[in-house]
Each structure stands twice: as C-alpha cells, then as structure tokens.
Amino acid sequence: MSGVVMFFMQIINGLNIGSIYALIALGYTMVYGIAKLINFAHGDIIMVGAYLSLVLLNTGMHWSLATILSILGCALLGFTMEKVAYKPLRKASRISLLITAIGMSYLLQNSFQIIFSANPKPYPAFIHLPALKIGSITISSNYYTTFIVSVFLMIVLNLYIKKTKMGKAMRSVAEDEGAARLMGINVDQTISLTFIIGTGLAAVAGILYSNCYTIISPTMGSLPGIKAFIAAVLGGIGSIPGAVLGGFILGMVETLVKAYISSQLADTIVFLILIVMLVFKPAGILGKNVKEKV
C-alpha cells in the first residue's frame, strides 16, 4: 500500500472514530451547558445502548426496530437517571453531583456485569452495505454509515436547537436559568429533554460503535466516554459546535498517532492534550472565557 493511500485510510479511520466521539461529546456538552453537571455516566449509556440492541437483535427483531427501541430505552434511562439521581441534588454543591455521576457510572457498569457477566460478547453487526471504492481506497460500509449518520444527527440537532421553541428554551436555560423561569420556561422539563436527547445520541453512538468493533462488554463505554469528555473540553464544554470539532480533532489525532507514532502511545497523547488544553486554554477552542464575577 502506498504512503498516500495509507494516509487517506487513516483519515477515514479518524473521521469514523471522531464522529462517534463527537456524538457522545454532544451529550456531555449539552448536559453541562444546561444542568452544569459533568455526567460521567454518559459514556456508559453507549454500553447500555449496545446491550439493549444486542438483546433485541437476538430475539430475531428487525434491526431498525431494535435500534429505535434501544434509543428509546436509553432515553428513558437518561430521563430516569436525571430525575432520581441528579434532580434532588440540583441545589447541592457541584462536587456532590460529580461524585453521584461517578457512582452512577459504576452502578451501570456493575449491574450490567451481573446481568450479562463481565465477559465480552460478540455483537451481530447489521450494517452490510456495499463498500465504497474511490481509486485504490476501499471504505467499508460501517465507516461511511457511521460518518453519515453522525453528521446527519449533528445537523438535525443544530437546527433543532437554533430553530425550535424547545431549542430556544434550552439555550435560555443555559444562559440564565432564573430569567428563563420568569419568562415562563419550564426548567425541569427543559433539563429532562436535554438528558433525553443526549442519551438518545449516546445510544446511536453505541450501536454504531458496536457495528464497527463487533464485540461488546460492560466496561466498553468508559474509555470512549472519557475521550468524548476530553473532546468536549477541547472544543469548549457547553459549546455544541465545540463538541463536534473536539470529537473530530481527537479521533483524528488518536488515529494518526496510532498509525505513525506508536499505537501504545495513542491514549497517552490524547490525555496529554487534555492536560495541555487545561493549562493553556481552559475554556477550550470555541469556549468563551468566563470572567470571574467580583
């Protein structure tokens, strides 16, 4: 394989994993923007989505129905998680919320280990479209499907937030919750909706991810979850375009490091990016510098 072809293959790999990170990062950033909470259990929703769809596919259900039901299942889980674990703590300190979120993450991982055992399970991938051939580059259907679906969802989400009244309500709550309330916005409902959308997107990410890697385990969500969190921080947490940008940058960096430097160093470099970012530009690439109120 020539160097140029190899490079393009890596770019495609990077776009693939980057779009998955971006989908997950969107959930992180939306929830942070509105509820000021880093939902560390968000990564585990990918895993829940993957297992739900596995169980449904194994019953012989058509993949489309299985996918829709898995997304709805995760959305319901996100909704419940917020109501049960986070809402009662909304007036508590941020650190309590953060600890609860970490606890929630372990709760999900461990309950899935009890139900499905800790052993990885094969996932019956269902994306079987013809591969795309451009010159000497072949792109498998998983890759372009992941990319197209993710970009499509990002565009829809962006339009939803920009154009609809619920989207405007979300932006207003993110800016000034108190003022939004006084303009008649139901803040509780808006926060619930944010969790529903975020976890729904994570479910999609989980299913796309499982189609690429075809092996799932109860801890599969934790590393992509952390990386998506880094992507959100990199782009500027709270910023939706930032999450998408951060996701793609991270996916690309990770893939290129794996290909050209060392596959063992890939994660080290990704985490190094987080540290460097936090030191030099804590607000992220597209984040606003928040001036401390005196």
């Binding site: 009244k165 405007k168 309500a169 932006r171 303009m183 008649g184 916005i185 139901n186």
Partner: peptide, 9 residues
C-alpha cells in the same frame, strides 16, 4: 429570539 422565547412559552 429573546422575544420569541417568551412568546414560545
């Protein structure tokens, strides 16, 4: 949008 927000509620 500021006005649409309160109208939309």
């Amino acid at each position: 949008e500021n006005v649409l927000l309160s109208l939309g509620a």
